[in-house]
Design a protein around this nucleic acid. Structure first.
Length: 153
DNA sequence: GCCAACGTTGGC
DNA sequence: GCCAACGTTGGC
């Protein structure tokens, strides 16, 4: 089983939206590296939910993969904000996975808090200039995050 | 709102 | 295949 982190702007889709819906398809990814990471995902993989472009940004909960990649149909829809004319049903360029809600942290772990933890300095989201919305997380990082959660809880 | 960092596009 | 221009992301 692998571990991941996925970003979403809470104005667009938040952990509360996911909790309400129970599950979602993670559509709208238009970055090859992020898509390639999704291709590696297996059912049962654990995922950190990160709120980006908000104050404060940080990890707010967890989810799990319940369906592996399949074509992202929103790329075919000219009215969709993520429409891509170079993607079509015969040759889909973009894909998505399905995710289910697992948990909401009692208190979010803010980016500032994460930066204070030396053991997390290897995380993609803490590296300068990283904008990738889907990144792998190591088992060690995952465990540190949950220890951190208990210590601040 | 600013702006650094980054990915993509397209002319050559 | 290079690289300047452009658009986007996302923390601050």
């Amino acid at each position: 089983m692998a571990y991941w982190l996925m970003k979403s702007e809470p104005d667009a889709f938040s952990i509360d939206d996911l909790k309400r819906d129970g599950q979602t398809h993670w559509d709208g990814i238009r970055n090859y590296q992020a898509r390639n990471y999704m291709r590696e995902m297996q059912v049962g993989d654990a995922v950190l939910f990160y709120h980006s472009n908000c104050r404060p940004p940080g990890i707010v909960g967890t989810m799990k993969v319940i369906k592996t990649v399949y074509p992202d149909h929103t790329a075919f829809d000219p009215k969709d904000p993520h429409f891509d004319p170079k993607s079509n049903a015969n040759q889909p360029r973009w894909e998505m996975v399905d995710l289910a809600y697992v948990s909401t942290f009692p208190k979010m772990l803010s980016l500032a808090q994460l930066r204070l933890e030396p053991a997390l300095s290897t995380m993609f989201i803490l590296r300068k200039g990283n904008r990738l919305s889907i990144t792998p997380v190591t088992k060690e990082e995952w465990q540190v995050i949950f220890r951190l959660l208990e210590s601040v809880g």
